[in-house]
Design a protein around this nucleic acid. Structure first.
Lengths: 359, 359
DNA sequence: CCCCCTCAGTGAATCGATTCCAAGACAGGC
DNA sequence: GCCTGTCTTGGAATCGATTCACTGAGGGGG
């Protein structure tokens, strides 16, 4: 036997019409039990399974979700995909994945390609500005969308992490330890995680009545190399910072590498806080104080939002969920070495877990 | 406008038949240039894009690849997916992803679901035994398959890493340093990476004329918790090993945690080699000697194999690619503390890079 | 005995494309 | 003027399912 059995084969072998077979497949009530049994037997005998393509063409439902992110090998997106697809698979959905590498041309190309496949809905994260062109691409999807970790506007369902609150808590903590020159490393300021981290950082300074030295805020990309490069420069400059906030999980390796290479001791010479908890943060010496977020929750919440929309019982208004972060204190922070600025020392943060109220 | 334009809409607006529009879409040669121009204008005017579902139903080609692995959030599979999908996307293919969690029931369920979608081909990694039931599920895919990191038999196209050679090199290196009690931690022995690691470990012992203490070979799972648990037990037992080989990238965090917790110094009290290079291995103190493999190559080679098969110029015989590993020496290994066994010390390995000739 | 209603099941239309066969237009050769 | 061949185009069949309108059979009530 060279090809898969079709509904026609089943109909012929069972001596019924294709309509009847279809009704058996979809467990339609008006089928005689005897007929149903006979058809079912033929179906298992032929290893029949209805062609999803044909079903989708007819019913306009594919039970497939498009998942589009900048880089699927980044543990962040990998974890989000894992938890999202687990929830979606459980409801019989399949997931089609595409990486855009954060490049505009690939984003457009992927959206166009995947739109033709008639996904039922989309989980996505775009890195380039939402201009008219992209707006049109999204409209062409003709399907509900949940945006993850980005702010694309009020009209989109959104699930984000409170990176602003995390950054605020980390900065406040460092200020409380006496730091006055705190560097913040993060990605392009156009991306929400970067933008709100800068915001939180500024707010912490403001509330403490401290000025912000803009040269200490370095924006680039979520790559270890960027973390390495900027940390190297920062640590070797004359007026070097006494603390560094790595605003991105992937930046920590670069920061540590740079500090190691220059023989700068953590936390004696420079304090470090990283955003995103990892094995590295936990197991390096000293263990690194981190702002912990929960990527798996992002995926899960996004998937549940989609499922709610697809099931129909949804008010239709775009939803927005902000997931909390917490500051986990470890051993990578200490008061700055003797270079204490004027003014009395500020109180430290009293609880290990500092749920952010920011945003 | 409520729905996407179809080929019929275009035909009506351009005043031609659907056949002609289709010929324009597929750049068939026998179309009058003037007609082609007119139809093309209507197409861009309507934002027309052919429905991939309908095309696939008719042509029996979906330009979609199924990607099935145990856990998509594991960096190993995430990197493989990234490199594979990059190569496939470049050729106009989309990728449908599913995680099986290594569970038989999910494997079967996912295979059945995805088979109905008529993928053009599959990249997959199964964790449960290839019995008749699974064999049938695979046959039902009616599409070429490339198996990654598993041995499912000669009839399958296969891409694997030479984990056996890596384990052999690591073990030989440790034996050369004078170790006589070397523990090997790895996953279920039914999985190829575990099986060949044990093989390599044994061969290194054999060649050195050393017996293997089976109680030092611990098989469980590729989880940090397993690494932690087994290392804790091993280090606290009376006749504890002087070296540990972590046979799996994910095991290292567990091994390090256990050693830290018990205050066992690396490499003074126990030497450690890990399989799989990571930021953690590079940045923890001491930096960990590793067997480096290249997951990205696995994905790339697997994707290229598929593309070759799909393009038709393929001899039809199942192919098999084995990717090399290399041993990267760092600071986590030293001769065992004074407990030297009888016999003279063996020579160390002379080159930093020890390409494995094993297998 | 007839009518009506219900229950099963048939067959055709449909989803949106591709592709093959046939036919019309037109030119050129005889 | 007719025949043939080339170049375009139209139209129908097809892929594999769903679904709706309709047909018959059989039962119950009047």
């Amino acid at each position: 036997m060279r090809h898969k059995a079709t509904i026609k084969d089943v109909a012929r072998m069972a001596g019924v019409s294709v309509g009847t077979v279809s009704r058996v497949v979809n467990s339609h009530p008006t089928v005689d039990p005897a007929t149903r049994l006979r058809v079912t037997e033929v179906m298992v005998g032929l290893d029949f399974a209805p062609d999803a393509l044909a079903q989708s063409l007819r019913t306009q439902v594919t039970r497939t979700i498009g998942f589009i992110v900048p880089d699927i090998s980044n543990p962040l997106w990998a974890h989000i995909l894992r938890s999202a697809s687990e929830a979606l698979q459980a409801q019989g959905y399949s997931v089609m994945v595409a990486s855009t590498n954060g490049e505009r041309s690939i984003e457009l190309e992927v959206l166009a390609r995947i739109a033709r496949r008639r996904m039922d809905a989309f989980l996505l994260t775009l890195d380039t500005p939402l201009d008219a062109e992209l707006q049109r691409s999204l409209a062409q999807l003709f399907a509900p969308v949940v945006v993850m970790e980005r702010d694309l506007g009020d009209q989109w369902n959104t699930v984000v992490t409170d990176h602003g609150g995390g950054s605020y808590a980390a900065t406040r903590y460092l200020i409380g330890l006496g730091h006055r020159r705190i560097a913040l490393l993060t990605a392009q300021p156009a991306l929400r995680p970067s933008a709100v981290r800068i915001q939180g950082y500024r707010q912490a300074h403001e509330e403490a009545g401290l000025p912000v030295d803009d040269s200490l805020v370095r924006c680039g990309a979520f790559w270890p190399e960027f973390g390495f490069h900027e940390t190297s420069r920062l640590l070797s400059q004359e007026d070097s910072p006494t603390a560094v906030v790595a605003g991105g999980t992937q930046l920590l390796p670069g920061v540590l590498r740079a500090a190691n290479l220059q023989g700068v001791a953590i936390p004696q010479q420079v304090s470090v806080v990283s955003c995103g908890d990892t094995d590295l943060a936990q197991l390096t010496r000293p263990a690194v104080t981190v702002v912990r977020s929960t990527p798996a929750s992002v995926g899960l919440v996004a998937a549940k939002t989609l499922l709610r929309i697809l099931s129909g019982d949804d008010d239709g208004k775009p939803s927005r969920v902000v997931l909390p972060t917490e500051l986990i204190l470890r051993d990578s922070c200490a008061p700055p070495a003797r270079r204490l600025a004027a003014g009395r020392p500020r109180p430290g943060i009293d609880s290990l877990t500092c749920r952010a109220k920011f945003e």
